[in-house]
């Protein structure tokens, strides 16, 4: 009986933990204007889930300066650039926090064969820059990202993530 309760508590704690990690990243996706292929409902849900996971991973990687969160959500150029960011932060002792993330995402292109989707993300968050754990800069930022995602075996992966002044 005690063992069952312990397992239940652990499972509950684990799910609450992942819920907490997810809840700090708010993502809204509008795929109604995607062309030339329309985005199926299940695909839209999968992209929303995987894009939110990607930002949770970015926040963790750049706050704790670890490469592990980048596995699974990123591929190609985005993975390379983020890995470079983490390794250079490890060297310099800097870190970044992305607090209260909110992403308004619009799908603007979905390839005829469904092998690439382009998203425009207007992201808002509180950016904190820390030097050896000491806060040196904090500001509320609004950043526009052009995002390319491609399907993998069981998920959508961020292949390209590029901030631009405007869409």
């Amino acid at each position: 009986m005690n063992r069952s309760v312990t397992i239940l508590v652990l499972l509950l704690a684990s799910s609450l933990g992942s819920l907490a990690a997810d809840s700090v990243v708010h993502v809204e996706l509008d795929a109604s204007k995607a062309a030339p292929r329309s985005v199926e409902s299940l695909t839209e849900q999968a992209i929303l889930r995987d894009y939110r996971f990607a930002w949770t991973s970015i926040a963790q990687a750049l706050e704790f300066n670890t490469l592990d969160p980048l596995e699974g959500a990123f591929t190609g150029e985005s993975k390379q650039a983020l890995s470079q960011s983490v390794t250079s932060q490890q060297r310099s002792g800097l870190s970044q926090r992305y607090v209260d993330q909110s992403h308004k995402v619009q799908a603007v292109f979905y390839a005829p064969e469904g092998d690439v989707i382009e998203l425009h993300d207007t992201a808002e968050y509180q950016l904190q820059i820390l030097d050896s754990g000491k806060l040196i800069h904090e500001e509320h930022v609004v950043v526009h990202y052009v995002v390319l995602m491609t399907p993998a075996a069981d998920r959508w992966m961020v292949r390209h993530l590029q901030a631009v002044p405007q869409f």
Partner: peptide, 11 residues
């Protein structure tokens, strides 16, 4: 001086 950007971070 600190610079942070995609793929770069130094002081």
């Amino acid at each position: 001086f600190y610079l942070l950007g995609p793929g770069v971070s130094y002081k």
